[in-house]
Amino acid sequence: MKTAGNTILITGGGSGIGRELARRFNDLGNTVIVAGRRLPALQDTIDGRTGMHAMPVDIEAPEAVRAFAGRVIAEFPSLNVLINNAGIMHREDLTRSRELGKAEDTIVTNLLGPIRLINALVDQLRTQPDAAIVNVTSGLAFVPLCHTPTYNATKAALHSYTVSLRDQLKGSVEVIELVPPAVQTELTPGQSTRDGYMPLNAFIGEVMTLFLRRPTPKEILVNRVEFLRWAERDGHFEQAVELLSAH
């Protein structure tokens, strides 16, 4: 993936990993559009910067995604990189019947959202030089945290979808998967200061080093996520599940 001179759209750009990725790519000389539900948070991301733009989007509504994609293409016809980063995470108790609103919202945001946005922008991306799609999954796609079952399932599904997408777009659009470990962000309450989680700045620094490699790895894996990514291959899957549950 080319790391300078792109026009990049990043979802979930109002906080956490999305905000820091947007700023780092902007620092490298890219035009960056940050998208998300909350315009004030997006404006905070781009405040005082040149070559950055904020565009709100509600990815829960298919028609809103199509309209948003049309607006992005109209205003930024050189768009050539999409980074699907938006996500939500909820704890769930599966031991009794419950309302499924949070589970359904998680599926829409974490899985249907990227699928809808890729579908709306793939024709645009295929016409652009140096086009790329980056899907942000999670180490929990490979080893589940049993308290957040729907989140884990959506990230596992997005990993699988990314593999298929990479194969089908081979030769026209580069497809990369970014796999974070537990990072100190605002994804869940208290997570930004939680002991044992990877500091956000350290995570982003390692990620950007990996993006600068040539060729770009098809999976961006910081050292801390390797234990989860290769747990099944290396024969410690059950141990990893137990460790996550205990933590």
Rank of each mutant, 00 (worst) to 15 (best):
N119L: 06
V163L: 07
P114F: 15
T106V: 12
T154Y: 08
I133V: 14
L165C: 12
T162R: 01
P114M: 10
L169T: 12
T150G: 14
V143M: 04
L117N: 06
L165V: 03
L125Q: 03
K155I: 03
V108M: 05
N135K: 00
K170W: 08
V143Q: 13
I118S: 06
N119D: 15
A120P: 06
D105R: 09
T150D: 08
T154V: 13
K170E: 15
T109A: 11
V108T: 09
T127V: 05
Q168D: 10
G139L: 12
S164F: 15
T109H: 01
N119Y: 08
P180L: 07
L145N: 07
G113K: 03
C146H: 05
D105Q: 11
R126H: 06
A120N: 04
T150E: 13
K170A: 15
T150P: 14
A131G: 04
K155Y: 01
Y161H: 09
T154F: 11
T154I: 07
L158E: 09
I107V: 15
T127K: 08
N135V: 00
P144I: 10
E174W: 03
A132D: 04
P114H: 09
L145E: 02
T106C: 14
H159G: 00
V163Y: 00
A120S: 06
R166G: 11
G171K: 13
G139D: 05
T150H: 13
I115L: 15
R166K: 13
L111Q: 14
S164K: 13
P129S: 05
I107S: 05
G113E: 11
